[in-house]
Amino acid sequence: MNITKVTVAMTVVRPNGPFKSEASMLDWMSLCLNCNTNNAAVVLEKISPPSKAAGGLWRINDAFESVNKLLDASGALDNAELQFAVYVLRLSIARAAGDTARCEAAEKSLQELSPAIAEFDLATFDGWVGAAKALLADKPPGTALDDSAFQGYLVLEQGTLYAIPKHAVENNKVVTEWGVPVDAYEPDQSIWSDEHKAWEAHDPMTNRDVLLMPKFVKYEKSELTSS
């Protein structure tokens, strides 16, 4: 018998209102998870977040805000790179705290730092693809956007966005035909989840980070020659 212990976060939406008690909710969840045909049993237990860790995190946040005010007053935040680093740190603290409202505000602030993507809705297919194109539009030929969500790269060729899997890139070289990567494909709306506001089976946060904290790499084209 194999026993695997995992920690997950679960959101329960109940049209009929909240459960009568926490115990009744756990009973319901246990019945749902154990209603299966694969002979696996699930035991639930409540895990309370460690208060000391949370308190320490908010002390870090307070310290950050104090330093941020000093940097702002000194004019240091006029430096684009420093401002970007400060905004990334603010977002990281908000995510560690699990504060949804702060996360949304921090992501919005980070997005506004990049005029190219400031007006795009990164939670939609058109907005995500449009932002990726905008980030690559002014880059020199041979520039790719590292796409950690798909374990690959994004390139813009003749106005079209292509996704290249990492296995198709060897020694920073990409095989092309008529200038288009051979093993690439166009991001398709059929694999975008409107419900999760991200690519299917991918973490929405990671999807947005590809654009909010872009990493660019150089590549060379290796054009196929006709025999």
Score class of each variant (00 low, 15 high):
209 D>G: 04
30 S>Q: 15
208 R>G: 00
112 E>R: 08
188 D>N: 11
11 T>R: 14
31 L>Y: 13
32 C>S: 12
70 L>Q: 12
44 L>Y: 12
76 A>S: 13
75 G>Y: 09
12 V>L: 10
162 Y>W: 15
200 E>W: 04
156 L>K: 08
169 V>L: 10
130 G>T: 06
212 L>K: 02
126 D>Y: 07
219 Y>K: 05
89 L>K: 09
166 K>A: 05
103 C>A: 13
116 A>E: 09
37 T>F: 13
203 D>Y: 03
1 M>E: 11
23 A>R: 13
14 R>G: 00
100 T>H: 10
2 N>K: 09
134 A>P: 05
151 Q>C: 02
12 V>T: 12
116 A>N: 03
161 L>V: 04
20 K>S: 04
107 E>S: 05
124 T>E: 05
80 A>N: 07
30 S>T: 15
19 F>P: 00
172 N>R: 14
210 V>L: 04
71 L>G: 04
102 R>T: 01
8 V>H: 14
209 D>P: 06
87 Y>V: 04
15 P>H: 12
215 K>G: 01
15 P>A: 15
221 K>W: 05
192 W>Q: 01
57 L>A: 02
131 A>C: 06
225 T>L: 14
200 E>Y: 09
208 R>Q: 11
19 F>W: 08
110 L>H: 02
79 N>T: 02
67 V>Q: 06
154 L>G: 06
45 E>N: 14
34 N>S: 11
29 M>S: 08
93 I>N: 11
105 A>V: 00
19 F>K: 03
179 G>H: 06
41 A>E: 15
204 P>I: 05
224 L>N: 08
200 E>I: 06
108 K>G: 01
43 V>F: 15
85 A>V: 04
138 D>N: 13
223 E>N: 08
214 P>H: 07
10 M>L: 15
149 A>V: 09
171 N>Y: 07
75 G>T: 01
190 S>A: 03
145 L>H: 08
29 M>G: 03
200 E>M: 13
128 W>Q: 03
29 M>D: 07
225 T>I: 10
21 S>F: 12
126 D>Q: 10
25 M>G: 01
220 E>Q: 10
1 M>V: 12
144 A>Q: 11
7 T>W: 11
105 A>D: 01
134 A>W: 11
61 N>Q: 14
143 T>G: 00
150 F>A: 11
118 A>Y: 06
59 R>G: 05
3 I>T: 07
114 S>K: 05
11 T>I: 09
216 F>V: 00
49 P>W: 13
104 E>P: 01
169 V>Y: 07
181 P>A: 08
93 I>G: 09
26 L>D: 06
48 S>T: 14
175 V>P: 00
163 A>W: 14
67 V>D: 03
59 R>F: 09
131 A>V: 05
129 V>E: 02
130 G>V: 02
47 I>S: 13
122 L>Q: 02
93 I>A: 10
215 K>S: 06
65 E>Y: 12
74 S>I: 03
169 V>F: 10
204 P>W: 08
194 D>E: 15
179 G>I: 10
43 V>W: 15
145 L>E: 03
196 H>N: 10
206 T>A: 07
